[in-house]
């Protein structure tokens, strides 16, 4: 059981009268890719926001690396090794691609404000390490040719990947991908699938949780799927079993009128 990195137990979150997440229970182990699917407004992103502590749940617990993180904030959870991307890319537009990746490593760099201002040796050493790590991360993911460019000058598909690279720079234990294929054309989606498979190969033991609409991506990648509708989990299981589940089909395609 020590392989379980992230676990939630009956989390529930309501905004006024709308219950966005209702008793959501899941777990994800090392090296696994799991997916959350569901129509718009099913509360998928809300689940992510609870996991990464942007929101606090009304009830239920979230366990990360065997520790209850219900009382922790976004910052400390990120430092524990939970990385995420956002539904609409949130790259830092004022920084180059390389600097964007460096930022993910910066909280852990060991030099202070005055060492930074006076160019002391510790700063030089730490900066070198950060730069090397960031560049390596970009190289593994074949993004190093864009290192000096501004994110806004890149095509959307590349921006998505840079955002994922940034989330990976710090060697996280869990990677949360919020609709990584949103706004991509079919060709780019296939490239993204290969890209995520490559991540799994290069970052050993990383657990990836994906929210997605695109069935091809989910069915190709995930080992296990949770299907959400109106905040409730209506089905869960392997891609094959979910695909044939009548409840899922009715949620997605609508119910046939009974004669």
């Amino acid at each position: 059981m020590s392989d379980i990195v992230l676990k939630t137990d009956k989390i529930r979150l309501a905004f006024g009268g709308v219950v966005a997440v209702n008793d959501f229970t899941m777990e994800i182990a090392k090296g696994e890719i799991r997916g959350i699917i569901g129509p718009n407004g099913a509360g998928k992103t809300t689940i992510f926001n609870v996991l990464s502590r942007i929101y606090t749940q009304d009830s239920g617990t979230v366990e990360f690396l065997g520790e209850d993180i219900s009382a922790k904030d976004q910052i400390s959870v990120a430092r524990m090794g939970m990385s995420r991307t956002f539904q609409n890319t949130r790259l830092f537009s004022g920084l180059s691609v390389l600097d964007n990746v460096k930022v993910a490593l910066d909280f852990s760099a060991k030099y202070g404000l005055f060492e930074a201002m006076l160019l002391l040796p510790r700063r030089k050493k730490a900066e070198k390490e950060t730069a090397a790590k960031a560049l390596e991360c970009l190289k593994i993911l074949h993004l190093d040719q864009y290192a000096q460019q501004r994110p806004s000058n890149l095509p959307y598909g590349i921006q998505r990947r840079v955002e994922i690279a940034r989330a990976l720079a710090n060697n996280p234990k869990v990677l949360l991908l919020d609709e990584p294929a949103a706004g991509l054309n079919p060709e780019e989606v296939f490239e993204l699938i290969d890209f995520i498979k490559e991540i799994k190969k290069h970052f050993e033991g990383i657990a990836i949780l994906v929210i997605e609409h695109r069935m091809d991506l989910i069915m190709n990648l995930c080992d296990y799927i949770y299907v959400q509708n109106f905040g409730m989990t209506i089905a869960s299981g392997t891609p094959e079993s979910v695909q044939n589940d009548p409840v899922v089909l009715s949620a997605y395609l609508g119910e046939e009128e009974q004669q």
């Binding site: 942007i54 976004q74 910052i75 956002f86 830092f92 930022v103 910066d106 909280f107 852990s108």
Partner: peptide
């Protein structure tokens, strides 16, 4: 918000 999710204590 993105900065916080990279461990930066804003």
């Amino acid at each position: 918000i993105a900065a916080r999710s990279f461990g930066i204590d804003v």
